[in-house]
Write a protein that binds this DNA or RNA. Structure first.
Lengths: 257, 257
DNA sequence: CTTTTCGATCACCTTTAATGTTCAATCGGA
DNA sequence: TCCGATTGAACATTAAAGGTGATCGAAAAG
């Protein structure tokens, strides 16, 4: 369901963009744009509709993504994989065997999960994507929080998730974000997810944020925590010192890999 | 990971049985028994080890399954599919759109999930297998309970699961079982799962049990609830009246399909 | 130190899944 | 109500994925 090859992903990406830009697009237009048959377009739109990206109507589809909102999980998972893997490897270095870790739900955290797969840890992921990546890891104690999975993203949110986190205490929280600046703090697009991140941070002794360089110049809608609440930030080496120096000044350990 | 063809499943089943019967078997013996190469046997044992069915040692594997315990999920899922689908279709008939349903984690309940996929319902599955079957159902409100997934089975158990159930009230609980008799009540193999089933029943106004005919003459270790706690039992038409009549006498509606 | 086992790698093959075409059924608009 | 475009199911085709077995260097057991 999620392991699509690059040609698939590429076409889905183009459809998603076309629909988002135009607001609504006809099936015939998309077929002409992508070179695929109308039948294939319909099947693609069905997939995107199931993830809450578009809404079908007879003859085409309209976008459900607000402007500025992030693209769907399946597409983001393919972008910048190399960078994400480097960040993930660095995060894995910071974790000691035996720790209890709460692991956020973004695509970068999915790579972190894969990097931690064979470690002896207790892990509670905040997304079903990450849960699925870790079922079958024999020596890992896997904990699932309750909650309502958001379509596509499969990030768990809501009172059940927050209650699950409140009932536990972790050594480390590994948190992804949509934006992270010294002044704006750590921010997310989704209000529910922001609340969950906050709960995860509140239940953890140590907080590590992961963020590709692009995130360090952005601020998203929902405020999660001030930069001073973070103990470490792992980003990639394209991050500008102008962005990272204020974080260091706020007492955060910044690692560029 | 779970969609293996029949030849695969057949070989895994034979390996599982051979290991369980003998306690421990060498790779060479299994290769001779199945006709597959040793390399394939090693890969199979790796799969079974990841599900907690066997434990690898150099040269072979030993069984981790206690005598009388049920075979692993992937194998059970293939057995008696037709019967399970008939039972599932009947259960789907008993559910009204808009209901809130807690859905147990067995292989029969997995078929129930597939039968309910396109219905407008609120569903909380008690196993990640069922959760995964329902992510992508657009008009369904999917709720995930917290908990610790048991390897292979992926049934959620523990305090988090019970707390999640205690926080909610459902219209209907659809419960699978390992044994169900009028005198012995509804029973399960795993103590943790039994506690979860009990919590699910306690949070639901109506309880429907699903059980292939073979279950109606068995009793498993962990007691869940007396037969009188059930409102309906859906089984197949090979069920003996000698088994079902006492259930009817206990006030249970019995459907044979 | 020797022998056996293991796991990585590669080539081969089966199986699966995606794609496009056709056609009957369905939906929306006039 | 009727007409026309759209849809989704069914099927053939093709590309991709995954399983399988052989080989070989490395590692572990004795």
């Amino acid at each position: 369901m999620f392991n699509r090859n690059m040609a698939d992903t590429e076409r889905l990406r183009r459809i998603t963009e076309a629909v988002r830009e135009a607001g609504r697009v006809s099936v015939a237009e998309l077929a002409g744009l992508t070179g695929a048959s109308e039948m294939t377009i319909r099947r693609d739109l069905e997939v995107l509709a199931a993830q809450g990206v578009v809404e079908r109507y007879r003859g085409g589809a309209r976008s459900l993504l607000l402007r500025g909102e992030e693209p769907p999980f399946v597409l983001r998972a393919q972008e910048g994989l190399e960078v994400k893997r480097r960040i993930a490897a660095e995060v894995a270095e910071l974790i000691t065997d035996g720790e209890a870790v709460v692991l956020d739900g973004g695509t970068t955290c999915l790579e972190v999960a894969l990097a931690l797969e064979h470690r002896r840890l207790t892990v509670m992921p905040l997304s079903l994507h990450v849960v699925n990546a870790l079922t079958g890891a024999p020596q890992m104690t896997l904990l699932v929080p309750g909650g309502r999975p958001r379509p596509g993203e499969l990030a768990l949110t809501g009172p059940l998730t927050e209650a699950s986190l409140a009932a536990l205490r972790f050594d480390t929280a590994i948190i992804g974000c949509c934006g992270l600046t010294a002044t704006g703090g750590l921010t997310a697009h989704d209000l529910g997810e922001a609340a969950v991140k906050r709960a995860a941070i509140a239940s953890s002794r140590r907080v590590i944020a992961v963020a590709e360089a692009a995130k360090l110049s952005r601020t998203a809608l929902a405020f999660v925590a001030p930069a001073s609440a973070l103990h470490a930030v792992v980003t990639d080496d394209t991050a500008d010192d102008d962005e990272t120096d204020p974080l260091v000044a706020a007492g955060v350990v910044v690692r560029k890999v």
